[in-house]
Nucleic acid binder design. Structure first.
Length: 482
RNA sequence: GGCGCAUUGGUCUAGCGGUCCAGGACGCCGCCCUCUCACGGCGGAAAUCACGGGUUCAAAUCCCGUAUGCGCUACCA
């Protein structure tokens, strides 16, 4: 327990595009661990792969994190004691460290060409061996090295790995993990372009930034021995490790773009609420040990415990997210109708259903009207025809038939007459108007309201009729009856 | 192929040797509420706890195998 107190944790994305929902969960679990242990949460950008760098993605990742409510204490934008927090700005630091390793004899120059490496792997594969660097350059003489350097032959720096024996380490989530060194490659630490690989930069930065717990995805589990080895070579105390299970597609493959929306911004765009997304992904691989499922963020922070995380991957069930999002929307409708109305307003404006001047009171009515029936903000689109079109579109044959029935024609006529008598339809007179329609037409109850609904909305289904009537107002209803 | 990790209803999960012929939630079905759809409430179907062996008086829970899935196996992270 005390191991986690005052921890320093970090989320270290690569700026290769948007923030992946799986990355968001890793960030969240780091953040939660920091927040419930009086710890510090650090954002570090791992842009050591120039090829995969995507312009603007640092900003996009930060924006997505902020949207989710995940804030950081140290990072590229706000600085901190251990900056810079962008790896491409720390190149000299990595170089210094890697050459220290070379001097110590824990790392070495490798001049092998890509072609040789490819060929080597092909041969290994054809022989059914595991593909690993054959340590061709591990024992070059100083003379050979100097020669190659003088001839400007490109090189990388590789770490030395033992090749035999086992390494065991403790993972907060997986407990003891044992990996044979036989499977740990002489990993490249410094690339020929002078950039570090993940392994070097990660270890150096985690140490320099005083990270105490590394919380990351399971895909890193097999490289943990390399990292532990580096800590040993540098004579540093390694942090604690926690390898999170992966998020999966419905077919249990790793969550991918092919089958799911995978970027946080997709979910924002689709009308999900950040609190709902956070609540949902927090429950993927973690739960408080009881039946509670709906939490305020503060509650999650209070209850969160890395040690209670599961070990197996979780399928990302969008249906459950939708349900949960619907719950949050209804909660918002109940407690903060203006908040809901604002979200709906933004959606309506973005999709050109209304312009910026549109009456906010009307939008609140829309929020009231639709708030119980939508699972995402974007679902209001299914009401826009009803709310903004003057014409009635009959949704089916039944509705059309009823709309021209004898009773419907009678109601229609009476209703038009009654509306003509008043200047505007509002809360004060709406009951009286419909009472009159009932008395004059002689039709009442279910039948009356059902027919009115069909006459003005074209459908047997829809939002609360009284609310709809008030929203459309006298003018709207008359246009629809015409 | 090698290595590692995992395995409770379709899905997310509770469970840490007896209280479990397995609890909650999503989804699905039915009933109630209601002018309708939804919301909400109530109820139901759905798991031989992957399989096979142990250990134990007793196992979903501990151990060992097998199967399956996933991950890693790059000068990508």
């Amino acid at each position: 327990m005390d191991d986690l107190k005052k921890c320093r944790v970090r989320f270290a994305p690569s700026p290769t595009g948007y923030l992946h929902i799986g990355g968001a969960r890793t960030a969240l679990f780091n953040w939660l661990t920091a927040r419930n242990n009086c710890g510090t949460f650090i954002l570090r950008i791992e842009d050591t792969d120039k090829e995969r760098f995507v312009d603007g993605s640092i900003e996009q990742i930060m924006e997505s994190l902020k949207w989710l409510g995940i804030n950081w204490d140290e990072g590229p934008d706000c600085g901190g004691e251990y900056g810079p927090y962008i790896q491409s700005q720390r190149l000299e630091i990595y170089k210094k460290h890697v050459f220290q390793l070379v001097e110590q004899g824990d790392a070495y120059y490798c001049f092998c060409s890509a072609e040789r490496l490819d060929k080597m792997r092909e041969e290994q594969k054809s022989k059914g061996e595991s593909t690993q660097y054959d340590r061709h350059c591990r024992n070059l003489t100083q003379k050979q090295i100097d020669e190659n350097l003088k001839n400007n032959i490109p090189y990388v720096i590789r770490m030395k790995t033992p090749g035999t024996g086992n390494i065991s380490f403790n993972d907060i989530i997986r407990e003891e993990v044992t990996i044979p060194f036989e499977n740990v490659d002489d990993q490249v630490l410094l690339k020929s372009d002078g950039f570090p690989t993940y392994h070097l930069a990660n270890v150096v930065d985690d140490h320099l930034m005083k990270i105490t717990i590394v919380i990351r995805g399971e895909e890193w589990l097999m490289s943990a021995p390399k990292h532990l080895l580096l800590y040993k070579y540098f004579k540093w105390t390694p942090p604690l490790f926690a390898h999170l299970p992966l998020l999966l597609n419905a077919d249990r493959s790793k969550l991918s773009k092919r089958q799911n929306d995978v970027s946080v911004s997709d979910y924002k765009l689709k009308g999900f609420l950040p609190d709902a997304v956070v609540n949902f992904i927090a429950l993927l691989g973690w739960n408080p040990g009881n039946d509670k499922e709906i939490f305020k963020v503060e509650e999650i922070i209070k209850m969160f415990d890395l040690r209670k995380c599961g070990k197996s991957g979780s399928v990302f069930d969008i249906d459950k997210l939708k349900w949960m999002n619907g719950l949050y929307i209804r909660e918002l409708k109940k407690n903060n109708i203006d908040g809901l109305a604002n979200l709906i307003r933004n959606y309506l404006i973005d999709n050109k259903f209304i312009d910026k001047d549109y009456d906010f009171g009307k939008i609140k009515q829309i929020a009231e009207l639709t708030g119980n029936g939508i699972d995402s903000i974007n679902d209001v689109s299914s009401f826009t025809k009803l709310l903004f079109d003057d014409a009635v579109n009959f949704s089916g044959e039944d509705a059309k038939t009823i709309s021209v029935s004898e009773n419907a024609l009678k109601i229609k006529k009476v209703l038009i007459d009654e509306l003509d008598k008043i200047s505007e339809l509002d809360k004060s007179n709406v009951n009286a108007v419909f009472k009159n329609v009932q008395n004059i037409s002689g039709i009442k109850g279910k039948e009356l309201y059902h027919i009115i609904r069909i006459l003005i909305s074209g459908s047997a289904e829809g939002p609360d009729l009284a609310g709809l009537i008030l929203f459309l107002g006298k003018k709207g209803i008359l246009k629809r009856l015409a």
